[in-house]
């Protein structure tokens, strides 16, 4: 295993219509609101100036929002574009949008929906927004695999040009959703990048 340690420099959890950053509740909405209404309200709250957001599917909106909150007030200029990567995962891949896209095939197949029938598109959206050109890989697993995520991110930081990595879980299926996104790097913090620490944050919601 890699001897070099990596650290968690920030985290965002969005679930049950609450947005938590570094463990603290930033904002919440009525839990009865439908997912799209919640995502729209969260966009108004945390951004409001990125029209492309409205073209995205729910998975991309959720991941994009988590990255927006996570990276707010962080100086990106200290890093080259290829030094930030993405390592995301979820349970349902793009199945939520797959079902919606295939509904359109019966009449007139929608290219605007088809492009979102891949789970890695959320990484493309985040990369475009923040100018990240580093590694990106999308894993699909039944549950959040904190073991793989912590070990693989640590390995990438030690063996590739990456100096920072956004990693975590971003899941949408119908009205069920949750995301836990972490910014990790080699810069020491009080929280080493371990499976235990990732799971502790993932479960705070």
């Amino acid at each position: 295993m890699n001897s070099e340690l990596a650290y968690i420099t920030g985290s965002v959890v969005i679930a049950e219509h609450q947005v938590l950053k570094n463990g603290e509740l930033l904002w919440e909405q009525d839990r009865n609101a439908d997912l799209n209404a919640f995502l729209r309200a969260a966009y108004d709250q945390f951004s409001g100036h990125y029209p492309k957001f409205h073209k995205m599917d729910a998975l991309s909106k959720l991941g994009w929002l988590a990255a927006e909150v996570l990276l707010k007030d962080i100086d990106n200029s200290a890093f080259q574009p290829e030094e930030t990567g993405l390592l995301l995962s979820n349970r349902s891949s793009s199945l939520d949008t797959d079902v919606k896209y295939f509904e359109t095939v019966k009449e007139f197949a929608s290219p605007a929906l088809f492009v979102y029938t891949l789970p890695n598109i959320v990484m493309g959206e985040i990369s475009i927004r923040h100018g990240f050109k580093g590694e990106n890989t999308f894993f699909v697993s039944e549950r959040f695999d904190a073991e793989l995520m912590s070990a693989y991110a640590t390995q990438l930081l030690a063996t590739t040009p990456l100096k920072r990595c956004l990693c975590g879980w971003v899941e949408v299926m119908d009205q069920q959703y949750e995301t836990a996104m972490f910014l990790v790097s080699n810069e020491p913090t009080a929280q080493p990048l371990t499976a235990g620490n990732l799971n502790a944050i993932y479960q705070i919601k």
Partner: peptide, 8 residues
């Protein structure tokens, strides 16, 4: 692996 950060 890289990303273009240009278009989806």
């Amino acid at each position: 692996i890289s990303n273009d950060a240009n278009h989806i």
